[in-house]
Amino acid sequence: MNLYSLRGVGKALSGRTVLNNVDLDIVAGRITSLVGPSGSGKSTLLRLLNRLMEPDSGQLTYRGTAITSKDPVSLRKEAVLVPQDSTMFPGSVEDNVCYATRMHGITDFNPADALEAAGLSTGYLERDAERLSGGERKRVALARAIALSPYALLLDEPTSGVDPRSSDIIEQSVMRMRDEGTTVVWVTHDIEQAKRVSDHIVHVKDGEAVMSDGRDLQGGGVY
């Protein structure tokens, strides 16, 4: 079953075509990697899936119905986007991890569980979030999304600028979530990583998306 289906989706930003006639299916309960060079439209695609913006043309469906018929706030609770910059909110790690659950009145939730699922120990809960390293921030941002137990995780380069060990922890965490039924869309520059973690790879180039078996992708390396 497809969680998302895109048919002929187009998007222009500041007069420049970023996505052009994209046809794509995101299979539920699987990891789909979007691989491609900078500026190819990968992040824009994620933002469309999270409804932070709307397509200019084409059809985008979520769970079989037009995405525009779904309330954007409810959609974002179900399909959470973790942006590339991992902005931390002022306060402790616990404040960050609990941000969305407090906002949505979710009480049966333990922030330590989300933190551990993202590969951080509970000792981090009291730490000042804005003083964390890049890798730690990435994991807190992931925990913040995991806290909502979403149907889908939309990850924008969750391991960029992260040390190999942290990167490995994030990969393991996300694959574990996939095994538990979460749909993951993973934007990456790293072709090897895409091959390692994904069930499906989509090659995004010049605003067009092509399903790939990975063999057509330069045999590894980084865009």
Partner: peptide
């Protein structure tokens, strides 16, 4: 902008995203 969009992406309404 990054902070606001991060909050929106977690299901905050526009007023919740800019409370501070």
């Amino acid at each position: 902008r990054g902070m606001i969009e991060t909050r929106l992406s977690l299901g905050a309404t526009s007023s919740q995203a800019v409370e501070d």
